[in-house]
């Protein structure tokens, strides 16, 4: 089944909303609060990392993902990460929201103690040094196989390495605390004709991890 976040090339979408140069950073007050609370949740409260956050977004239901927009899905993911780390009890946010709405609701007791993942980053951010030389060089033909951050539309497609980028931690294992496993990352160019079967003079580039690729 297609992942909820994997939207590239999905049919059935209407016009893109018209850009508004005067759009405020946060359209409503709660969006700013959700942004900050989620950033703190990822950064220190849940003990989880950026890739775990993206993975959590990917596990939301379509309703959770789409109903309240970008910051709405952040809020759902923050809540899920705090519950997964036993910082908050399941249902705690819902119960409090209901009390705020005037309902009489019992709130669940806090978890006995937090269960955060046992992980300390080896360096800040996502970029890392990798000792091994990159497997691929600019100009190499490669096929995209599979990987957590490989959009479905490029799976099985052949492109050309355009740039060798700094190595990154590997989302596939890092998201689930199975190791940073840094890898070389490549910007790969795909022709629209290869991806979609039409579209001359259009190229799409993606950043892909070394194990997502095989020589073509």
């Amino acid at each position: 089944m297609a992942r909820v976040s994997d939207l590239g090339g999905a049919p059935g979408h209407g016009p893109v909303p018209a850009p508004d140069p005067a759009e405020p950073v946060f359209g409503e007050r709660w969006e700013g609060r959700a942004f900050a609370l989620t950033a703190f949740t990822i950064g220190r409260l849940s003990g989880r990392n950026l890739e775990a956050f993206r993975d959590t977004l990917d596990r939301l239901t379509p309703a959770e993902y789409h109903d309240s927009g970008y910051f709405g899905r952040w809020l759902h993911a923050a809540q899920a990460m705090l519950v997964a780390s036993a910082v908050l009890a399941p249902g705690a946010v819902d119960a409090r929201a209901r009390r705020l709405a005037g309902e009489t609701v019992e709130e669940p007791p806090d978890p006995a103690e937090p269960a955060k993942p046992d992980y300390s980053p080896t360096a800040p951010g996502s970029l890392r040094e990798v000792e091994a030389a990159p497997e691929y060089a600019v100009g190499d033909r490669v096929r995209a196989r599979k990987g957590a951050r490989l959009p479905g539309y490029a799976r099985g497609r052949v492109g050309t390495v355009a740039r060798v980028q700094p190595a990154h931690v590997l989302p596939d294992t890092h998201a689930v605390f199975a190791g940073e496993n840094p890898q070389h990352v490549y910007t790969v160019r795909f022709s629209a004709r290869e991806l979609w079967g039409d579209g001359d003079d259009v190229v799409v580039t993606l950043e892909l991890f070394e194990t997502y690729l095989e020589r073509a």
Binding site: G72, L75, A92, L100
Partner: peptide, 16 residues
């Protein structure tokens, strides 16, 4: 509406 994101954001902020 207790499921509105505004109320859930406020709830989360209070709890934390």
């Amino acid at each position: 509406d207790p499921t509105s994101p505004a109320l859930r954001a406020e709830a989360l902020e209070q709890l934390l």
